[in-house]
Design a protein around this nucleic acid. Sequence first.
DNA 1: GAACCCACAGCACAGGTGTGCAAGAGACTG
DNA 2: CAGTCTCTTGCACACCTGTGCTGTGGGTTC
Lengths: 338, 338
Amino acid sequence: MDKNSGKTFVSAQQVADRAGVSRSAVSRTFTQGASVSPSTRQRVLAAAAELGYHVNHLARGLIHDRSNIVSLVGANIDTPHQSRMLTSLTRHLQNANKVAMVINTSGEATNSEAALRQTLHYRADATIVLSGQPDPSLIETCLANGQHVILINRDDPVPGPDSIVVSNRRSARAAFAMLQEAGCSRMAVVTSEVGSASLAARETAFVAAAHEAGTSVDVIRRGPTAYSSGVEAARLILGQSDRPDGVFCVTDLLALGFMDAARHDFHLRIPNDLSVVGFDDIEQAGWSSYQLTTFAQPVDAIAQYIVSLIDQPTRSDTLREPTRFEALPVWRSSVRKA
Amino acid sequence: MDKNSGKTFVSAQQVADRAGVSRSAVSRTFTQGASVSPSTRQRVLAAAAELGYHVNHLARGLIHDRSNIVSLVGANIDTPHQSRMLTSLTRHLQNANKVAMVINTSGEATNSEAALRQTLHYRADATIVLSGQPDPSLIETCLANGQHVILINRDDPVPGPDSIVVSNRRSARAAFAMLQEAGCSRMAVVTSEVGSASLAARETAFVAAAHEAGTSVDVIRRGPTAYSSGVEAARLILGQSDRPDGVFCVTDLLALGFMDAARHDFHLRIPNDLSVVGFDDIEQAGWSSYQLTTFAQPVDAIAQYIVSLIDQPTRSDTLREPTRFEALPVWRSSVRKA
DNA sequence: GAACCCACAGCACAGGTGTGCAAGAGACTG
DNA sequence: CAGTCTCTTGCACACCTGTGCTGTGGGTTC
């Protein structure tokens, strides 16, 4: 009688007893589209309110083999871009009467794999992979059990999962055009060592565009995708005698670190001495210390589309083309005007 | 045979049939501390691996009345501080073999209340309230059903929920001392209109300390707790003839907005013309454009403590004193040296 | 007034799991 | 060899729902 004394969840049977009806009537009252007379429904609702009854979704999910849980899998959730995506997804999921289960794969690999298995344990309706490289066999297992798998910004086309892709190559080429029109003659790309497919796509597309235009490009690859890597990249490259005057950072976070180091360590003026273009349009890019010209991922539209995808039937046999979303340029003042 | 053709989850019965044992043996194999012989355990594990079996946690939770799900309830999850807290909590929960369910209360009130009810629907082990003002009756319902409720940085002492509190008053007084020692003569507090209890505590403690020292203090209250509110606050107050030379912002986000506006709109130098102190120590506070002196919440320690709290028995009758964590000063260069 | 239909309530089963209980198989002791 | 103890296994029940099926009552149509 100490721990949890008598405290336990109310069941439908107790509500039925109190309302003087059968348990079926209670169940039907809380089931969408079931047949109950208005009078009994009202008695049930009254009894439920008095007792504080809440339908047990575990039992409900047991029957339907779907739990209304959607698991969001990703690393670096505390990054501005990822946390915004996560926020948008949770909001849209809630509007669709679903609930988000967050699985953080930032830790050690064994741990994250165990965590990923939770999506199967809880019979999640879908697994949404925000980033990172989950084991392909796990994805296969999810698919084999009839789960939806939705990949964001991963370029590897595997049969089965839906995938959402942002116009990485196209926007990277647009970034090159921006810098070229700004009159930059020596360019660089700043990226990270743990490049995901989409970061790699931005890098290679930029390099390709520069190559076609006969412009030289340095590729700097330092550390993880973070502010500090941008700082390091700047320190590495801006000390050179023929330093670049136009830089494309594959992520806003890298760009902001690069800008800060350029200004405070090398006393360069942006955009006069150096033009910078980023990617993602995180909130900080718009802060007046930065005013970074960048490309905005349509986070809300992506989240909404993903949620709309969940209830559609799976067709795991066909290899689907990824759905493309356009990342549109946001003009601020980190690129020199022609 | 189109949608989900034959795809369904594997049950323990199927594993038992394949391994030539009873279903109980399968169950015991996957139950911690149950009695199974090594030989059968191995046969079961082999069969489970072949079929891709995963214990159904919905059914398991049905029996134990606890699902190993912990729900994290909060608004503004895409804020740097909140998203860091969320990340830390998810990591620690996963290490404790639990899983996080995120409930975003940023939307309309009716919607968020419905979302909060999910914590009861899914028989969550605990509900952790990161921020916001959930309806007290809902908290009561959670407690009545034997759920843990843990409140972060909420000062209202209600009997039942555990609560974690950061040294708001003490740190705010320390902030005043910092600015005083820097020689500031006219001070201001910048806070938000939608003040939570802990923000209000920081504000009033700062004002009280100033009052005791005979220093005048302006209180500026603009919009939500965001960068843009800091900008607006600066625009409001820095145009005055006797503008403040020392400002305490109850949140780093406010402080960064304030700093940016002070520099770019009013061409003030920090800390020469203006000293600024923040609170939270978000990542951006350490960026070289800001170098904000602030107070660090021990996010990781808080998260770890909260997770350790979950499995302890509830004693809902006693009114517990909130557990205090010290927010320690982080000296950077936004405050003038004496 | 008879035949028919409709709406609704209850029974009973299914869904996948954990676990108390009894029974069986060995191993060990006397 | 009998008795006792330990380890393991299977049976059956419980957990809380949703739902197909049957039955009942009342209203409508001819």
